[in-house]
Nucleic acid binder design. Structure first.
Lengths: 219, 219
DNA sequence: GTGTATATCTCGGGG
DNA sequence: CCCCGAGGTATACAC
């Protein structure tokens, strides 16, 4: 990884055009060739960047970064204040816990935490327009489509609605009702869901994880 | 901005929990206090980060970054390979061109490029669930709601549908038809739009900009 | 490769 | 402050 602190102006032309006036910034070049221009603030997102693959042409007063898609990033360098290179090696990568996939796993293993008497048919039940998170049957044997989100916003209701429309075309499943499950469900999403006859369930991730641990402890 | 290259392991606990095994990485600390852990690849996104505002506690063998929301980032440092600090100053910021806002401006100025006889009522026409990009009237005086996107995907159709439902409750506007305008409209989006009686128009950004320049040239 | 859904999304605007 | 929408979204995953 190469780190350059320089007084520079930057122009990007590609999916849009963008210009950065002259200022002191960090130019980060990673081993895979990607380039990022950072200011001294504004979260982790760089002001401007170029993803790999690309070619970096280093001229006297400017760097020209070009991608095969026809994008270009031109860095006019007026003054270099720091320039260093470092060997980092390959990163073993990030281990995550607590994202939607894990929430879905926990719910699949414990469908009764969503609603009394619910049993799982399958996870990622396929339809022509995409997979339904959980397809279940309730105590009466009726089909229930469950959409899982970490945060329950309006687009999840739209998503579940599209799936329900599709599933209700299948005579073997019909009638299918929907349940929207999330750690928090926003008021707009709840209103829309209720209007459409979709149930809303808020679940506690830590509590669910607790149930899971308890079950494991029995063995 | 402080740049540290170090052999370290990292743990984040907050919106999720995440762990990074021991490896050499860049630790970037910006003037506003935000911290980002970068590997030598993987585009511009850091492996792990903590946004401002936060407090950084620098101990003998570890840094503990805590946010007021209760998130923590713990960096266990085994070996420091580089450590430098740099004054960057305030950045003048990015100037953009070619995004949806500009597309919307151009269309607002030239509504007939969307459909023959169309005239603008107003941009960002407010409804209870959000603003409609363009509200127009056609040659017959009927209301037309226009949703503008750079890329026409399925969520834009959902958005326009919600607006149309809402607008059609207004006796002064009713009946309102919809037109979905984008540089490219994906097949799925076109199908859904057509099913719902929504028109689809693909427009050429460069051509539209050309029309605009021609008009300016007349003055 | 296209299409779909997620993200510690980030970022900005409006009420 | 939250809500909502856009993004050069990027990224993963299924078909």
């Amino acid at each position: 990884m190469r780190l350059v602190i320089a007084r520079c102006s930057v122009d990007y032309a590609g999916r849009l055009t963008a210009h950065l006036p002259l200022a002191v910034r960090l130019i980060m070049v990673k081993a895979d060739g990607c380039v990022a221009i950072h200011a001294d603030g504004g979260a982790y997102k760089p002001l401007n960047w170029m993803n790999a693959p690309n070619t970096v042409e280093e001229l006297e007063d400017r760097w020209v970064v070009s991608s095969p898609k026809g994008e270009t990033l031109t860095i006019l360098i007026e003054e270099v204040l720091h320039d260093s290179a470092h060997e980092l090696g390959v990163d073993p990568g990030l281990q995550k816990d607590g994202v939607e996939a894990h929430l879905q796993e926990l719910l699949a293993a414990n469908p009764t935490t969503i609603a009394e008497g619910l049993s799982l048919v399958r996870r990622e039940y396929p339809t022509a327009i995409g997979p339904v998170d959980l397809l279940c049957r309730d105590a009466d044997g009726s089909a229930v489509a469950v959409e899982v989100k970490r945060r329950g916003e309006i687009d999840g209701v739209e998503q579940l609605t599209r799936y329900l429309d599709r599933l209700n075309l299948d005579p073997l499943l019909r009638p299918v009702r929907g349940i929207y499950v999330a750690q928090v469900i926003k008021p707009q999403a709840r209103t829309l869901a209720t209007d459409r006859g979709i149930g809303c369930v808020e679940i506690d991730y830590d509590e669910l994880r607790g149930i899971e641990s308890d079950e494991l402890r029995l063995f």
